[in-house]
Design a protein around this nucleic acid. Structure first.
Lengths: 223, 223
DNA sequence: ATGAAAACGGATATGGTCAATCCGCTTTCG
DNA sequence: CGAAAGCGGATTGACCATATCCGTTTTCAT
């Protein structure tokens, strides 16, 4: 787990340096997850209990830090897709993938931004879509052959659905963090070739008062 | 149409002043529609062929200009809802309302932002939701009684659906401006109490190459 | 026609944010 | 113990949008 880092001339980092590097990575993970990629390196430094300079000594810039942190997280998506493809029922696999991918994004705001917004400078990490799409294509095809998925759905609809729901997730985060599940269920029903009678939606609808809160929360984060 | 403005002491504006005021309003309407509320008063002034100072002499600040411009536009939503309520088939009314409200937002980026994001300073104009929700409640109830809308849908789901689709609309604007219709159809099918066999989706799915474009376009506008 | 009042334009001041640097001080470790 | 490595965080620099200010131009009532 604890990766040992080495300096340019192959020497291990000094004990304090290695300790601070870990603290920075931990703080970054936590803050990125909570507030998204907009947190500053200053925020991260303070939260890690070190100075900004220390952050810049370890990581050339913000994009590198992000790449280092998220290369691994992003692999989880591929794993999820593999898992979905392995499901004997491709429809279940597809629904499970959408649900679990969105659960990941609900837990980590930065991951959501990387997947849906392709921020500048982290293209390397963004290339997962190139690996996900072919797998998704196969899953979609098999789900259609099983007769459960409507024939005119396409693999490219998957990221679009994620985009829509992650927008909702973002807006509703502070009011009803699970609201996306209600609308994912609606979308999935819309994708079904032959939906039965409606199954109960959960969570329930928003209260009228909460609508304004969700709308105004479309942008900012918690300080 | 051409409203005459008066100064504090009830005198009409000088001819050049009135002419410039109109130019500013026209330029603002156009730029807000194209690029959203983020355009600066500087942009607007230049596009109107006047100096920034002229804008600030007529409008105390950006929020006032926005309020003046959008009070009327926002009324169109209420009109749309009234029209929807008047439809003898409440399900048709509901579907029509969603479609037309989103068409309005597709044509005017700033309107979309006002409706879905409640920007600071324009609360006055944002209060339409208070008028829309009761009307929506009634429409939803009648659509349920007609047996076409699933029983567990609620009026508060309407703005959420608009939020999701307007996020998509924003992202896909430059690649496939009509893509939201595809997903609105899917959502509507998910809301239906007893959907028949799938009807053709239009437009078709995104090409794999376009997915990346849509994702990276989540934020910025055209300069 | 004329001159005072109104309006104009746009350079500039202001305030805010964030990335990135720099250097006097502290810690590590051979 | 002392040289090298590391540290902290104030500071610099770049940027950007809002809003102001004032020398010049336009209008219009007389």
């Amino acid at each position: 787990m604890t990766q040992i880092t080495v300096t340019a001339d192959n020497r291990p980092l000094r004990r304090d340096a290695e300790r601070n590097r870990q603290r920075i990575l931990d703080a970054a993970r936590e803050l990125f997850a909570q507030r998204g990629l907009c947190v500053t390196l200053n925020d991260i430094a303070h939260h890690a209990g070190v100075g900004v300079g220390t952050v810049y000594r370890r990581f050339p810039d913000k994009a590198h830090l992000i790449d280092d942190l998220f290369e691994q997280r992003v692999e989880e998506l591929v794993a999820l897709m593999d898992q979905a493809s392995a499901d004997p029922d491709p429809w279940n696999g597809l629904v499970g993938f959408l649900t679990r991918a969105l659960e990941l994004q609900a837990q980590d705001r930065a991951l959501k931004e990387i997947l849906n917004e392709m921020p500048d400078g982290v293209e390397r990490v963004c290339r997962i879509r190139d690996r996900l799409l072919p797998l998704g294509s196969d899953l979609v095809r098999r789900a259609q052959e099983s007769g459960r998925l409507r024939a005119d759905a396409a693999a490219t609809d998957i990221p679009i659905i994620q985009l829509m729901l992650s927008a909702l997730m973002d807006a509703a985060r502070d009011v009803e963090p699970e609201l996306w599940r209600r609308f994912l269920a609606i979308v999935i029903r819309g994708l079904s070739a032959d939906p039965g009678p409606p199954e109960a939606l959960s969570p329930g609808p928003l209260l009228p008062n909460d609508v304004d809160l969700v709308m105004s929360r479309s942008k900012t984060s918690t300080p």
